[in-house]
């Protein structure tokens, strides 16, 4: 569990982060979202003390991070940034091995870990181990950057706009892969983005920052249906919030007993997919693969604030 207590950072007497407190449970994925200058990146960088707080505390599993030398603290916390920041003079394997090497792991263990991570990120170890970063595509470099952050099995991973440099098609895949890997490893993840769609798609909870202050900290559905301030409402936009809300719930959660005509929809598809399918095929109800039915009336009821 990560507890952020009354964290403040002043620059020339002006608070860039102003008395922010929030708690992240173990295994949770929290997204810090806000416009540029909202203090979200400063907040993130105070967690691994790339920026020292002016006041306040960060506790990891109850231990104050200020008590540890900063570089030792950072070796326990994964860190991945926009544009990946790979070391251009090191191979992919050397890049991934950075933190284990700093921690003095034995060589065979490092090699095994590198291959394990490459495989986890769908990069063939034989092919990529000795490749230099400049010979990677944007998507591959991003995955190596995340693999490097995860190399020493940190309990906490910090990511600053990790998908910022990717084109939309690769970005969607990279987001899904990250979500999948984070669930599988049970890593607590705090991610910074300015993109509300990314926040809604990825976050278990979303922390909205504005002018250095935390204005709302809640699960995505709550943010969409009950924005705390006009700023949060502007950030989510009103154009497609009904569709975003539907995209949060899988069909299997709300399937009712019954029968319907036509080809079934997969149980893990989102309600948004179900609505699209209804409209496209002109049906009022869809059978759900594995039993049950989802109706247009159900979808209509769920697409409104509760």
């Amino acid at each position: 569990m990560i507890e952020i207590r009354n964290l403040t950072r002043l620059y020339n007497g002006i608070a860039v982060v102003d008395d922010v407190s929030l708690t992240v449970k173990t295994g949770e994925l929290v997204v810090l979202v806000g416009t540029s200058g909202s203090g979200k990146t400063t907040l993130l960088r105070m967690i691994n003390r790339l920026i020292e707080p002016s006041s306040g505390q960060v506790l990891i599993e109850g231990a104050d991070t200020a008590t540890l030398p900063a570089h030792l603290l950072r070796r326990r916390i994964g860190y991945a940034i926009q544009g990946h920041g790979l070391f251009p003079h090191w191979t992919v394997a050397q890049n991934i091995a950075t933190v284990p090497r700093l921690l003095g792991w034995p060589r065979p263990q490092i090699d095994a870990r590198v291959d394990e991570l490459l495989a986890l990120f769908q990069l063939d170890p034989a092919q990529f181990r000795n490749r230099m970063p400049h010979r990677l595509s944007g998507g591959q470099a991003q995955r190596v950057g995340v693999a490097r952050a995860l190399a020493a099995k940190p309990d906490l991973l910090l990511m600053d706009e990790p998908f910022g440099a990717l084109d939309p098609l690769i970005r969607a895949k990279a987001q899904a892969d990250l979500r999948d890997i984070q669930r599988r490893l049970g890593t607590t993840l705090i991610l910074v983005t300015h993109d509300m769609t990314e926040a809604v798609d990825l976050g278990d909870r979303i922390a909205v920052m504005d002018g250095g202050q935390l204005v709302q900290y809640a699960p995505p559905a709550r943010i969409l249906t009950d924005p705390a301030t006009p700023f949060v409402r502007d950030l989510i936009g009103t154009g497609d919030r009904a569709l975003r809300l539907l995209s949060l719930t899988p069909v299997s959660d709300v399937a009712a007993p019954g029968r319907a005509e036509g080809p079934p929809i997969p149980a893990e598809a989102s309600l948004r997919d179900a609505l699209a399918e209804c409209l496209w095929s002109g049906r009022d109800a869809l059978p759900v693969a594995g039993g049950g039915v989802i109706t247009l009336d159900t979808l209509r009821a769920l697409a409104r604030p509760r």
Partner: peptide, 11 residues
């Protein structure tokens, strides 16, 4: 970004 990554990884 490269310098940040180096510091952020705990060097």
């Amino acid at each position: 970004a490269i310098r940040d990554a180096a510091v952020g990884l705990g060097m």
